[in-house]
Design a protein around this nucleic acid. Structure first.
Length: 305
DNA sequence: ATCCAGGAACTGT
DNA sequence: ACAGTTCATGGA
């Protein structure tokens, strides 16, 4: 991570092939999103750092990311944690040179990397958040998934009010470990999803799973098996979490309906591709399947194509 | 009304 | 191992 602390703000120095505006466009895709706000060219995100709420204003000037604190006074360690979060959020450890070199020669990807040049996999550094979002998104349309997430955040998350606007942090697993299935059922979560989410929250409070422990396995396949051992987490959810939380560039959720539809529309197919066909396309993307997937997903929210 | 949605567990063979 | 069934709700 490449960052610098200043009196009233911090700066992050991203690698080449990063475009903050592209990432903002992605983050703006959902009108119901509660976990950040997009203003005119900048981003506001509430983070809970060492039990203190820190409201961050994030913008980019001359390829430098600048973060100011609109509310809260983070210590040096807190600032480092904030920098780390943002660094992970925008996947800034990656060098995309190889991906762009591969993609520019690729029939499917070449138009996409031109259109979204500088877009990073916008991740979810928080393991609980990424698991819950994967479970919420299972087998329902995205709009409804966003609605459920909004209810979840507003009912169980913490918030602060700044200049007459409310900002939220994702509910903690400690909180969710204590609620009843019925409370989520009331918000139109299915009984199963409610059980999965509460079960995972409990597993995290008892330290049965943690991001730190999983990271120490140093092997994405092992992490995937550990994730799939959780009730409610199948191959699709595990791949999703590997991509968004663990930065696994080889993650490739072939079962994903959105990805299948992206292939269909980008290739002008009259049906969705089979898993075999998807593996065939991906042979050329070895090691960069997650980026290919993310760019294909990105193309879905573009009504202009 | 019918089918599908950024799936997964459960059941029966 | 593998296919069929159930979950449950919103949108097209």
């Amino acid at each position: 991570m490449n960052w610098k602390n200043h009196d009233s703000y911090i700066e992050l120095y991203p690698p080449k092939e990063f475009d903050f505006e592209q990432c903002l466009d992605f983050l703006a895709r959902d009108a119901q999103e509660m976990l950040h706000k997009i203003k005119d060219g900048y981003l506001i995100k509430l983070l809970k750092i060492d039990e203190e709420m820190i409201l961050c204003k994030i913008e980019a000037e001359h390829k430098v990311i600048k973060v100011e604190f609109l509310s809260g006074k983070p210590s040096y360690e807190g600032r480092e944690e904030i920098a780390k979060y943002i660094w992970e959020w925008f996947d800034l450890d990656q060098n995309l040179e190889e991906f762009y070199s591969i993609a520019s020669e690729d029939k499917i990807l070449s138009p996409l990397v031109k259109r979204y040049y500088g877009l990073r996999i916008v991740g979810m550094p928080d393991l609980f958040e990424s698991l819950v979002w994967a479970i919420i998104g299972q087998q329902i349309n995205l709009n409804f998934a966003y609605t459920l997430k909004k209810r979840f955040v507003q009912d169980f998350g913490e918030n602060i009010v700044f200049e007459n606007e409310t900002y939220w942090v994702f509910p903690s697993y400690d909180k969710i470990a204590q609620i009843e299935v019925e409370e989520l059922r009331n918000h139109q979560f299915t009984t199963r999803k409610a059980e999965y989410i509460i079960g995972i929250a409990k597993a995290m409070t008892t330290n049965e799973i943690s991001k730190e422990a999983l990271l120490n396995q140093y092997d994405f396949e092992k992490i995937k098996q550990s994730l799939m051992a959780l009730r409610g987490v199948g191959a699709w959810s595990a791949d999703y979490v590997l991509m968004k939380c663990f930065h696994d560039n080889s993650s490739y959720p072939v079962g994903d309906v959105g990805l299948q539809n992206a292939f269909k529309s980008n290739l002008g197919l009259d049906r969705k591709p089979t898993a075999e066909e998807m593996y065939e396309y991906a042979k050329a993307w070895k090691g960069w399947e997650a980026y290919a997937t993310f760019y294909l997903w990105r193309s879905l929210s573009d009504k202009t194509t």
